[in-house]
Amino acid sequence: MTVRRGLSNIFEHKATPYVIMAVVLILLLGPIYWTLITSLKTLPEAIKWPPSYIPQDFTLEAYKEVLGRSPVPKFLLNSIIYALVTTTIVTTAAVFTTYALTRYKYRGSNMVLLSFLFIRLIPPISLLLPFYLILRQLGLINTRASVIIYTIYLTYPLAVWMLKSFFDQFPQDLIDAALIDGASRLGALFRVVLPVIANGIAAVAIIAFLWTWIEFLAPFLFLNTDDLKPITVGLYYFVGDETTYWNSLTAGAILAIIPGIAFFMFAQRYIVSGLTAGFGKE
């Protein structure tokens, strides 16, 4: 019992959370740090044994190599296009759908909501084959549309599911008051509901963006030409046979990560508060 009490005191100590966080941050950020510094080394230094933990010969050579040799800027642009288009379509559609399903119920509307949950549980990889067959039949293989169609399917149900809890928490009285004041039902949505749950919508949009950003398998299978590839796929092609050029490979990896990290720095408040509200009160 005394051991237990002692342990308990250690955990209860004020400094403990900081110690745990230090360890966790090393585990979580260590790989990113290691990738970053490898990308700043020369090739001989990158494959030196024992490895150096701080680059001795700080150089941007690897980045020049990556940007000069393969169309990485184009890949990044493609990723942004896919992510933005998907996010816009999905967020807009999901707002209307969720508003209708949570506030204007009709026979079967609960069934529809449940199906969204159900869809989220079907592994996307299971539907890769039929998607592939359909796209082939429609002649959409190797087009931007093929990827966007797939990422909409990937993100839309989750967007509805997450938005549902925001709409659920919104007091019906406020909507009713707006309606009595003469606002239309859509007017109430735009003027009363949306400003209040803006945080939540931002969170949903960010998640849709990220999920599209990191998607690999579908664009890998649907696209053939360099002009259309997103960064995840472009990077995979790039590294394939060049696994020995670790400094260039890691430089490519950093380029693929940076936009996502920038997004988090910029919008972390929305994500945490949005997700907390969205999932915290189930």
Binding site: Y132, L135, N224, T225, D226, G240
Partner: peptide, 24 residues
């Protein structure tokens, strides 16, 4: 050309043929 690593070359080639993609 597109640089396709040997590990995935056959997959991608079949991919093009199965989908009758004329861009390659």
């Amino acid at each position: 050309w597109a640089e396709v690593s040997s590990e995935i070359l056959f997959q991608k080639t079949l991919n093009v043929l199965v989908s009758k993609d004329e861009s390659v």
